[in-house]
């Protein structure tokens, strides 16, 4: 499978075979990501990291992915101090940076920014989030977490929280539909998954059910994927509090869960997962954050043609 010079813009361009290949490659990268093995696979290569919006784990995991493979990172630094503050267009920034680097990681506040960058760049673009649009490397690391900590085939997964606006859950659901997953949506009525997406998922082979509380689903699922509910979605703070309290995981709630249940969260969490849950066998959100490293190592190595 040839990934060399491919842009990684959105999950919609990935087939199941392509996803499987990335996840298998990531698995081979894991010992290097853990520091147990050394690698100079990307020695002499430069990755430019352009973040027009703050991010901690996505930026750091791309950087560490590159360092672990012996490559170098060129960071844009603060947007305030750069030419962007002087009004340079993204197109111009990309045309300049692509002559300094072998690949570009981009996070930008506007939807479609990564696609625009791919139109102007002579090197591969890796989309690390474009506004409310796509964030394919997050989806791939979520899939990798499910594969490593549970199983992708025959998966029963529940997604809880803000399913209306959360781009990560939309993109994850589309990818899971390729594996014929049974998906249970848990959300308050005001944050339900858009009908159009549910119809799409069913047409693509996923089985979807909707419930309003975690209790209704917890006994049956292999993976519970929690997301943060944002306060600003609710005009009334009391209403937010009510909803937030209802969608909270506690050790008490986990009594009915299967031993194999794994709880995921893209982080940062606020209070939707009680800290006591961290010590249970079910918690795998910190592991999930780590998995971002081997997945991004795999992606960078693939698009740079260092491996096939």
């Amino acid at each position: 499978m040839i990934f060399k010079d491919h842009h990684i813009i959105s999950m919609t361009s990935f087939s199941k075979d392509m996803i499987d290949h990335i996840l298998e490659t990531a698995e081979k990268m894991e010992p290097i990501a853990l520091g147990k093995q050394k690698s100079d696979l990307l020695s002499g290569k430069v990755l430019a990291v352009l973040f027009f919006e703050p991010s901690t784990r996505t930026r750091m995991s791309f950087e560490t992915a590159m360092y672990r493979l012996g490559g170098d990172v060129l960071n844009l630094g603060s947007v305030d101090a750069s030419s962007i503050a002087k009004g340079e267009t993204l197109a111009d920034t990309i045309r300049v940076v692509d002559s300094y680097a072998d690949a570009i990681v981009l996070r930008h506040p506007r939807e479609g920014a990564a696609f625009l960058a791919s139109e102007f760049s002579t090197v591969p673009i890796l989309n690390a989030g474009d506004g409310a649009g796509h964030h394919p490397t997050q989806t791939l690391l979520d899939l990798y977490t499910i594969k490593r900590q549970s199983h992708l085939d025959g998966l029963k997964i529940a997604l809880a929280g803000d399913l209306k606006y959360g781009r990560t859950v939309h993109s994850l659901c589309y990818a899971l539909s390729l594996y014929g997953a049974q998906i249970t949506m848990i959300s308050p009525p005001e944050l339900r998954m858009p009908e159009e997406i549910i119809n799409d998922l069913e047409n693509r082979g996923a089985k979807v059910t909707e419930v309003e509380s975690i209790e209704e689903a917890i006994g049956d699922v292999d993976v519970l994927y929690m997301t943060r509910i944002q306060k600003e979605r609710f005009p009334d703070p009391a209403e937010y509090q009510k909803v937030a309290n209802r969608l909270k995981i506690t050790t008490d709630l986990l009594k009915d869960a299967k031993q194999e249940l794994r709880i995921m969260h893209p982080l940062p969490r606020v209070n939707e997962i009680h800290p006591d849950v961290d010590d249970t066998v079910h918690a795998c959100y910190f592991k999930q954050a780590f998995y971002g490293v081997p997945v991004r190592m795999a992606l960078v190595a693939l698009v740079l043609g260092a491996i096939e």
């Binding site: 267009t89 930008h108 479609g112």
Partner: peptide, 13 residues
Amino acid sequence: INPNCISNSNEPI
């Protein structure tokens, strides 16, 4: 129609 779309900014596209 998406005001936050990159095509609605000052990019040369």
